[in-house]
């Protein structure tokens, strides 16, 4: 390529990451707009439908995700201090927490499917319009969120392998910070999804 690549500009890639985060926020923003409009139009139905969701699963997942954010942030601190080993442990912890989150999600969705609650199911179609919308939004938003968790996981595996082969060091760690930023964004989105779907009973 060009010799520009010899110049690493961490600040630039960080701005780039932030800008990307903004687009992600607005991507979910579109769904949040749809959610708030439909909730405004069907307050009672949303209320009723939310009863179907399991608060404890949601709560556990919130705490898991918050913790994973903290561990990844600490992994960044560790790498800045030059403690690669600690950083590896903390990143792995984040990965494990993320997988646990996904497993929880899998069982949660699975339970819904068992109760015949999935988009387009006969049972769902007999419910009121507000409830259909609630579950449509529930699956779309948590589904998109889970997709982001998976992308975050891939990023963290890359981080881990770079820590392993020592291409990430105390002064070359922008990838870790950017993955962190991305992961915290996923966290923030969940922070809003949690009350909107689980806490409005």
């Amino acid at each position: 390529m060009t010799d520009i690549h010899l110049h690493r500009d961490d600040e630039a890639s960080k701005i780039g990451m932030w800008l990307f985060i903004f687009t992600e926020l607005l991507l979910f923003g579109g769904l949040f707009i749809a959610y708030s409009i439909y909730r405004f139009k069907n307050p009672v139905a949303f209320h009723m439908a939310a009863e179907e969701l399991d608060l404890s699963v949601g709560l556990i997942n919130t705490i898991i995700l918050l913790t994973s954010s903290a561990t990844l942030a600490m992994a960044y601190t560790a790498v800045q201090l030059g403690k690669i080993g600690t950083s590896k442990i903390l990143t792995s912890a984040t990965i494990i927490l993320a997988i646990v989150f996904l497993i929880n999600k899998y069982f949660e969705w699975g339970a819904k499917f068992e109760h015949n609650l999935y988009p387009g199911s006969d049972y769902l179609m007999e419910l009121s319009q507000g409830e259909i919308l609630f579950f449509g939004l529930y699956f779309a938003m948590t589904g998109l969120h889970a997709l982001h968790i998976i992308i975050g996981l891939i990023l963290m595996f890359v981080v881990l392998s770079r820590l392993q082969n020592k291409t990430m060091t105390s002064d070359n760690n922008q990838l870790l910070e950017n993955s962190g930023l991305y992961w915290h964004l996923v966290d923030i989105i969940w922070i809003f999804l949690f009350p909107l779907f689980y806490l409005i009973t």
Binding site: E24, L26, L133, G136
Partner: peptide, 26 residues
């Protein structure tokens, strides 16, 4: 991104019958 998600919603609507924009489903 807003149109992106909107188009995704149309796709979901067509494939999974979610009902975001279908008056019959609210």
């Amino acid at each position: 991104p807003i149109v992106g998600i909107t188009l995704v919603m149309v796709i979901l609507e067509r494939t999974l019958n979610i009902g975001f924009f279908d008056p019959a489903l609210g």
